[in-house]
């Protein structure tokens, strides 16, 4: 690990996040002191979980590229496990699931090698055709379509999509941006997760007009707009330190992260509503499962990756 210093933009932004977290913890502390019925336990749990998540994320990012890749691989693994545990499958699918799990280390080895050509086709082309074939070998045609589509979609969203976040690391540092790929990961992660929080806070404070009442009754136009605006301002502030983006491009990136985050979020809301569950798991106190935390990242990561790749690398 290189020496920790404030002049390093990555280190400075980690310090800033911990500063924000400290402020949130203090605010929550005062909210809870006044609140006699203890209605804000979930909020307190949530902030406490943020401490854990941000600490783990910071260590994963700072230690070494291998650790960062393993970290994202583990997220994919836990997310895929949650996914197959909440969807209805057949006993015959067990053998296919075993192979589906094996795609996770393979995909992340490709990330580590920086082998973009295979990384981008491995799951959408190879796995997409070979998994159904493995399913055929097990010989049960009842429910074939349901299983194939569910497992393929799950792999796309939890493994293929999330691995793009790790692949950002492979963008080298340039004169325009000394933070390089790690800076891009920080930029995206801060704004993506920050956008979730900002949408929630704006929605709580001013939320009135529902966007998609049938899918996510708590999502409002006020929350979405406030969140998007906050994220765009955040993007403009962070971009000079962490990215090679111009001012205009950073605003667009912020807007894109806010929209993609929203779409990812409501996509999983629809899935959970279909399955008649509230949370995908219980791994993270106050948040639910890991899928509930990374739902907004699932669409943001590939879109942001390709946006950067197209315009800057």
């Amino acid at each position: 690990m290189p020496d920790f210093s404030i002049s390093n933009p990555i280190h400075a932004s980690i310090i800033a996040i911990f500063g924000l977290l400290l402020v949130s913890s203090i605010i929550v502390f005062f909210i809870r002191r006044k609140d006699e019925k203890d209605e804000h336990k979930e909020l307190a749990d949530r902030v406490k979980s943020w401490w854990f998540m941000i600490t783990i994320f910071s260590l994963a990012i700072l230690t070494s590229p291998v650790v960062s890749v393993i970290f994202f691989g583990l997220i994919s693994f836990l997310a895929f496990k949650e996914f197959i545990s909440i969807i209805p499958l057949r006993r015959a699918d067990r053998s296919v699931l075993f192979w589906a799990y094996l795609t996770i280390p393979l995909q992340y080895v490709l990330v580590y090698m920086g082998w973009y050509g295979l990384f981008i086709v491995f799951i959408p082309v190879w796995v997409f055709f070979l998994l159904p074939f493995r399913l055929i070998i097990s010989g049960q045609t009842d429910g074939f379509l349901k299983s194939v589509t569910a497992i393929s979609w799950g792999l796309m969203i939890t493994v293929f999509a999330i691995s793009h976040a790790a692949m950002l690391m492979k963008f080298p540092a340039t004169e325009a941006s000394i933070a390089g790929g790690v800076g891009l990961i920080m930029f995206m992660a801060i704004l993506n997760q920050g956008n979730d929080v900002a949408q929630y806070v704006w929605g709580k404070l001013f939320g009135k007009h529902k966007i998609l009442p049938k899918i996510s009754p708590k999502k409002t136009w006020e929350g979405f707009m406030g969140g998007a605006l906050t994220t765009m301002i955040g993007a403009a502030i962070l971009a000079p330190f962490l990215t090679p983006f111009s001012f205009i491009f950073s605003l667009l990136a912020g807007l894109m992260i806010a929209c993609a985050g929203f779409i990812g979020d409501v996509t999983f809301s629809a899935l959970k509503r279909d399955l008649k569950i509230k949370d995908a798991g219980s791994l993270i106190p106050g948040h639910g499962g890991i899928l509930d935390r990374i739902d907004s990242l699932s669409l943001t990561a590939p879109l942001f990756f390709h946006l950067v790749r197209f315009f800057y690398y």
Binding site: K81, E82, I84, S85, R94, S95, L97, F98, Y101, G281
Partner: peptide, 9 residues
């Protein structure tokens, strides 16, 4: 009766 372990929550 199965030796194949598949992670499930």
């Amino acid at each position: 009766g199965e030796g194949l372990f598949v992670p499930f929550i």
